[in-house]
């Protein structure tokens, strides 16, 4: 029974990995930017929400309703003000720029909040759980997180298919110059892609902190999980990313059940195995990003 439980917990955390990873996939697909500060921005969002909650006493829901749009706007500005300039001279400058941001965020958080990890209190929902049997119970919070992840991924998929700007984003992903010929300003579209990425990573950062905790140094490992979810699922497919996140979560939880020392190793090995045996991923490209 503990194995069934490990698989179910893996599925639940996999949704969060996918929610975090979809922005990574979007930024890469549309702009070919590998945002090395993706995890650190998520941690930054969680810490800012932590300060907001402890300063004003609002609950997590209101903190999220404030943090997510602020981060989306922030993402738009980062893209327009910084990354758009960097991508004009090849793929390396944006890599260096996001790497620099990652170092700055990590060390600023270290200065401001010490190296301790912090958790966000989700309220009563944090302790309630759905008891399936004697040994298996699913936390309502984690079920809610999985539901949110599916909702966001589905909404994003719809946006990219149906909305005019969303379709333009896909056009810009395929061919930047052709997209600007039919009226899409790439600088604005790139800003929108980064805004979506930052909004989703802020939400994921808050949820990471609510289900367990985050420390100033946890950004890079979250980035790795997100990246692995994208590759396992298959580049350019949002539902693939969800599947990849779930596969990663199951591998980590089942191996961790056997021996906690193998938790991370199992995830990385699954990633390498997929890379070698099925480099196109579990659900190869059908839609969206490249």
């Amino acid at each position: 029974m503990i194995w069934v439980d490990a698989v179910l917990q893996g599925v639940l955390v996999g949704g969060l990995y996918a929610l975090f990873a979809c922005g990574l996939s979007l930024m890469f697909g549309v702009m070919r930017i590998v945002n090395l500060a993706h995890g650190d921005f998520a941690v930054l969002a969680a810490f800012l929400a932590y300060s907001l909650i402890s300063a004003s006493g609002v609950n997590l829901l209101y903190a999220a309703l404030l943090t997510v749009p602020v981060f989306a706007g922030f993402g738009y500005l980062v893209q327009r003000g910084l990354l758009n300039r960097a991508i004009s001279s090849g793929p390396l400058p944006p890599l260096l720029a996001t790497f620099g941001l990652s170092v700055v965020i990590q060390n600023s958080l270290l200065q401001g909040y010490t190296a301790d990890s912090r958790a966000l209190d989700p309220g009563r929902i944090g302790t309630a759980s759905l008891r399936l049997s004697g040994q298996i119970s699913l936390s309502y919070l984690e079920l809610l997180i999985l539901g949110l992840a599916v909702l966001v991924l589905g909404g994003l998929e719809l946006y990219l298919r149906r909305n005019r700007t969303g379709r333009m984003l896909r056009a810009a992903a395929d061919d930047r110059d052709a997209a600007s010929l039919v009226g899409g300003d790439p600088r604005h579209l790139y800003g929108v892609a980064t805004a979506i990425a930052f909004g989703t990573l802020a939400l994921a950062g808050l949820l990471f902190a609510a289900r367990s905790s985050v420390a100033p140094s946890s950004g890079p490992s979250e980035l790795l999980f997100g990246f692995e979810a994208v590759v396992i699922g298959g580049l350019g497919s949002l539902w693939g990313t969800l599947l990849g996140g779930i596969a990663l979560g199951i591998a980590q939880n089942v191996a961790g059940q056997a021996d906690p020392a193998y938790t991370l190793l199992a995830g990385h090995l699954l990633f390498l195995l997929v890379l070698i045996l099925r480099p196109e991923g579990l659900l190869p490209r059908r839609s969206v990003t490249a």
Partner: peptide
């Protein structure tokens, strides 16, 4: 290299990082 070279140019960056983590954990 046979695993790492499966990844296209930009994803190669983070892929090599994951490989480094594997050696670290081993």
């Amino acid at each position: 290299s046979f695993a790492a070279f499966r990844l296209r140019a930009d994803y190669f960056a983070v892929g090599t990082w994951a490989i480094a983590e594997v050696y670290h954990l081993l």
